[in-house]
Design a protein around this nucleic acid. Structure first.
Lengths: 396, 396
DNA sequence: AGACTTTCTCCACCGACAGGACAAAGAGGG
DNA sequence: CCCTCTTTGTCCTGTCGGTGGAGAAAGTCT
């Protein structure tokens, strides 16, 4: 299959492509209702898009009491690759132009193995998806990495948990390997974009997306756009002080949020509790698995283990303290909680909510939903596909 | 004088008006260099602006080796009123269309007297400036109030320190009284806009502006635009918890930043120190003035009083702790410190800097200036004038 | 079958804009 | 003082983007 080469020639075409992406097949009339453009002009632009091959005819729609409309849709052969690299696992998915997931793989991985090893694995996973017949090639790829990224050129900068990645030209290297345009961003930002595109944050223009996995980060969406900060490190809330003179953190300070609550901290606390025989439930799991993770704590809590519940509640409270400050500062319309620890579910959510509603100003919390993400581990890859499609569906 | 009635008819005219506002008189050629428009089209738009009276001819400029250029400038009779209402004082200034201050008054005031009394005073001050021959009327006014504002309609909402203002239609009422368009915003946001227009934050697109006065607030500028949050309360950092189980705060919580450091807290601490005879310097000032304010602490510190220095240092450390979190979160390119306590100067600044540089991530602080505001108490009124001019210089 | 609706296309007209030609006004050199 | 070069500003024409109306195409409903 010939890969996508054309780009929208102007802002109107870009707008139309994004409408078709977000809403699927549409008739000219439906599109005309949503765009400030006369029918005639609209027809011209759609004809041009049809010529480029980005858009194809999609049969007749049902009549609404008059002449039946001719639908158009994005080219069905377009394929985006979404990659979400975490600290200990990676998700790779193929989507069509409407950002629907056609195939999704996840594998364990150690990001500390460095970019070369990681990309070998990622490319192999992409190859598997191709071999399964889901794509013959990719028109674009979005990549999320667990650290700060200099966004314009797609290069990680000084990532604390990714030694060996500093300055590696991710965008350029992958673009070369895949033979298509690539965009790179922080994994948390992509999760936020995913939830904004297809999750709980649909149509919300100002919100925070807190991702609690191995570490803790926060995607910031202001006015419908991701705020990345001047060096791409915005949202790095894991090292905000949550406990004065608290636990030592890898960053050199004490009391960082991440030192007190995160996937890694929770696993450590649980192991400690198991070893000290504080919790029989956890001790049994340690015996079985040889090591404990957040998943074990979630399972133990679900089984009613008091120690696990207390660990989750305390972590939620710490996290809630920090989020409370961010809510006062940023005044979002929504807070989304996601990431690996989402399995901790409503115990965690309740602790966070309690703390935020107690500490933040009533005006800021009055109508503030705090909810779990809706997309789970697909949020990142959908966000990645969204990132590259936003790029490709903009005038060149 | 006939007041401004016209508004720019399109985006080009708006762009030209803003260029003339920010750069003063300009020739067509100079304007053409900064705008993506052909000379012919540019000339047409300028002619139209000349017809409306918003812009006037301003003589010939010096030759640059060829034909001398005909300058144009914004109508010299345009007048904006900038009002910055604080908790205990009010600033009122008149500017021309280039936002240069032609006259400036400040008076003490108690915002708790309610909107009616306050506006009576403000209108009287505006009248004085008129009587001084600085204006015959106003083409627009910007108003800053010390509390959250529902921005689109210019109404304070649930302002903690402004009982009696909740829901008062400030914009509508003042527009009626002054007979000109009015825009209302939080005083901190206006300070940020002022420093962005004419102060230290010129040409910075992402920065924080921390105003420490009676209370503490923070203006947030993201991508060159003020972020106000969904309910207009963004930047309300005074009630972020700075000290776990710290002092009780008026908001009902404990350990709020504002309870530990602000103009009001500092005055209280100083009075306490004077009463307890910890500081002879402060005790003497209490004797003389009957009451102590931040100004007394600043003076005592300047005179070498150890207690005052320590109070400032501790306050700066607390503030720095909170700012450190915000810096990690927002990753700004600049932090501006301003407000009434700016008089505390470099002792305060040093304490804040130390804490931020210690606690925030190196990537976020690596190239982060933390500086005092440059405009002092004019920042608010310049920001207010800027606010209304941005509004008036946009297509209707 | 006829009336009404909805969708889409065609066409004439308008305004936005670019770019070149040209005029005006100055600098500088011989 | 004349000539050339430079810069600025105006005028004119051609092009393109875009609107809105007329009308054809293709339905539904009575």
């Amino acid at each position: 299959m010939r890969r996508m080469t054309a780009r929208p020639a102007n802002a109107h075409q870009a707008r139309l492509l994004k409408l078709l992406r977000d809403q699927g097949p549409n008739s000219r009339a439906q599109l005309g209702d949503q765009i400030e453009l006369s029918r005639s002009k609209l027809a011209v632009e759609i004809d041009r898009l049809l010529e480029t091959g980005l858009v194809v005819a999609d049969g007749l729609a049902a009549s609404r009491g008059g002449r039946r409309s001719h639908n158009v849709r994005l080219a069905p052969g377009l394929r985006f690759l979404g990659v979400d690299i975490g600290a200990t696992s990676v998700d790779v998915a193929v989507t069509n132009a409407e950002l629907e997931i056609l195939g999704h793989l996840d594998e364990p991985l150690d990001v500390r193995d460095g970019p070369v090893a990681v990309f070998e694995q990622v490319l192999a996973m992409a190859g598997k998806l191709k071999d399964a017949g889901l794509a013959e090639g990719f028109d674009g790829a979005g990549i999320g990495v667990p650290g700060p990224v200099r966004f314009p050129d797609g290069v990680p900068v000084a990532p604390p948990i990714m030694p060996g990645w500093d300055g590696f030209p991710v965008r350029e290297a992958l673009s070369q390997e895949l033979g298509c345009p690539v965009m790179v961003d922080n994994d948390v930002n992509l999760m936020a974009m995913g939830e904004m595109h297809a999750g709980v944050a649909r149509s919300v223009r100002d919100f925070l997306c807190v991702k609690i996995g191995t570490g803790i980060g926060c995607g910031i969406v202001a006015g419908g756009a991701v705020h990345r900060g001047v060096t791409g490190s915005a949202g790095d809330i894991g090292h905000i002080q949550a406990v004065p003179d608290g636990r030592p953190c890898a960053c050199g300070n004490r009391g960082c949020l991440e030192a007190h609550f995160s996937g890694a901290a929770l696993a450590r606390d649980a192991t400690e509790a198991a070893r000290q025989q504080v919790s029989a439930e956890l001790a049994a799991r340690l015996e079985t698995h040889g090591t404990l993770t957040a998943v074990d704590v979630a399972a133990a809590a679900a089984a009613g283990d008091a120690t696990s519940l207390e660990l989750i509640r305390e972590g939620g409270t710490r996290t809630g303290q920090v989020i409370a400050g961010l809510v006062s500062f940023f005044n979002p319309g929504l807070v989304v909680i996601g990431g690996g620890v989402t399995g901790l579910g409503h115990t965690l959510l309740a602790a966070i909510r309690t703390q935020v509603y107690r500490q933040s100003l009533p005006l800021a919390t009055g109508n503030l939903p705090i909810v779990l993400g809706e997309l789970g581990r697909t949020a990142g890859v959908i966000g990645a596909a969204r990132l590259i499609s936003d790029h490709l569906f903009s005038p060149a």
